[in-house]
Write a protein that binds this DNA or RNA. Structure first.
Lengths: 196, 196, 196, 196
DNA sequence: AATGAATGAGGGTTCATTCAT
DNA sequence: CATGAATGAACCCTCATTCAT
């Protein structure tokens, strides 16, 4: 393993440790000493990789947004019709959160905390861009209503997050039927239905 | 002023102080000493009214949910047609958050923090119930799609919150046009459009 | 009830409350607020009767020493022979502590705390005097060894306290046999056995 | 100095600081901040070595009991006759307290405080065992009265403690004569004097 | 680069005492 | 006299960060 890979591995271990602890106990309930122990490194070591606890949290956010974006780009079959691609994308996003519940909780805590203000990618990460690009395409081609792209992408994103949270908290069981209904609700909201 | 009113006043002062500070600095960045100073009481006094910092935060959440619910119930003219009432309600909710931005930020931090787990009203406060009741009525009368009432009310609620946050962060300017569009997006998503 | 009696009653209630709480939780674990609540008075009221917490504790000590002395004086049949009177006295003292375990615990905490230094009756209360007087009589009449009276009375007193504590902590079960043995141990230690 | 020795040194410094302060001001009058300052460490450092203030106090008790036991074992010349050994042991114990008055005060505060209840070695430390063993030997060989060993050892121990406290408070001056008298008092109390 | 003991400011909380009612 | 809400100093403890090894 190269030197760089070793560093990358260690960073990942610290990220993983942080993610899990924040999910369980929140930012405040996650001391650096615990992060270190769970990551299998010394407390001081973390400070070789990250300037401060804040910097670590923010870096982790960026890292996770990037990882999610990667996965969302996979398997978008552009030969399919637009509506089908929308449903695919929406559900893929939803299921990503189901598979990575700690990521979801981390995101939600993060964007609703003072950290977010200090985050350079605030609202402009690759993930949001992917959704925005796709929706803009739909507007240009007349499949979707005309609306500020950013606005629409945030609404769509929010619908995914909300649904995943509902499912995970168990407040409402989301079966395949409900899932389809929610996706349909979003689609009905944004699709161009002029003439009806 | 009666003894009870004095107590109520003091509780309100503590609530107001907490609300403002949490909005600016988050839960962790809001020491009790500051809450006390801003409320014009001694640190120890807070503990006559609330068992702990956690208890204070949770009580504040309940209090604010109740206050918002009160306001949402006002002026619902039941003689109007259902769709109009929906748009009215949605916009009223939205504007409430614009007038009370610190409440919005507080809610969002709260529901995405470990506090929420320990909150007895978790997902079952009067505010959610008002929305749910209204939507259920719409489903029964055939104005809306059939969907799990809880699910739908959370989605609608989330659309309001998301819109208000977009507006307040200034990421997208929400003019009256955009506002109408978003409300329409939600309405189109939930309205019964079978036959089209 | 006269005014004075009312005051006496209230003082007694405060004393009783303090005694019980100190026994359970120690001085440090006994806040004035709890003393007040258990005594059925307001916190401020205590300060009408006692200058401070320290003063209360010290007054309680004096009060209890006096009460115990009273009881020890009762039933000392001076017509009996000296040794019998000694055994009677020793056992009476012992049983007093068994009947009033909280008094015993209070005494022991008190005399081993910094409070004791500030106690005017430090080592000179009526209770010690009764014992000392009785022992001096024994020395004068030749029943007991010659020894500094104060020293002997403290040793005897300590034997009673120690025995009672052993019994109450259950470290050693003190049956009537053991009790007799201990009293005998003390008697053999102090009695004039010259000539043997 | 090895790492372990450094740790041991630091623990000792904290112990010494605590011992001195508790002696002067009692447990409650001994804040951790002072313990730290007197020990020449930061407040937080203490918590690397002890879980809490309670844990520190309890650990100190165990440590001191062990130290005292060590010293008591030294120089017990088993070739001497039993009574001489008894007097030697008793006086050695007594003088240990004179040389280490803060230890005596600490012990007495400790065993009469709620801490003692939570102490794992409660009444079963090496020090008590040494005394008990010696007394049991005396009973087996017929030098001492038959009595529950635990009971007798507590009584003897208590006589030492009481004497030392008398001496140190200056209530009674204990000269070599008085010392001999007290040791004799104990010996006369426990020795087998059947036949007289 | 890695360690982890040490730091010490700052946090939440308690509680003896006061004083307006 | 009695009340008990209010005070605020002082407590124990945590934890982000540093630095000698």
């Amino acid at each position: 393993m190269s030197q760089e890979e070793i560093i990358a591995e260690k960073k990942k271990a610290i990220f993983a440790s942080t993610l899990e602890l924040v999910r369980e106990n929140g930012f405040h309930g996650t001391p650096m000493s615990l992060v270190a122990k769970k990551a299998g490194v010394a407390a001081g070591t973390i400070y070789h990789y990250f300037e401060s606890k804040d910097a670590l949290i923010i870096a982790l956010y960026s890292y996770l947004r990037g990882k999610m974006a990667e996965e969302m780009l996979r398997d978008d079959d552009q030969t399919l019709d637009y509506q089908t691609r929308f449903f695919n994308l929406w559900k893929k996003h939803f299921h990503y959160f189901l598979r990575h519940t700690d990521v979801l909780y981390f995101f939600e805590q993060f964007v609703n905390s003072p950290y977010y203000e200090r985050c350079p990618e605030k609202g402009n990460d690759r993930c949001q861009n992917i959704i925005a690009t796709f929706l803009n395409e739909g507007m240009e081609k007349g499949f979707l209503k005309q609306m500020n792209g950013k606005l629409m992408s945030i609404l769509v994103n929010s619908s995914v997050v909300t649904s995943a949270k509902i499912h995970l908290t168990g407040k409402v069981e989301i079966t395949e039927t409900e899932l389809q209904q929610v996706a349909q609700y979003v689609w009905d909201g944004i699709r161009n239905n002029q003439g009806f």
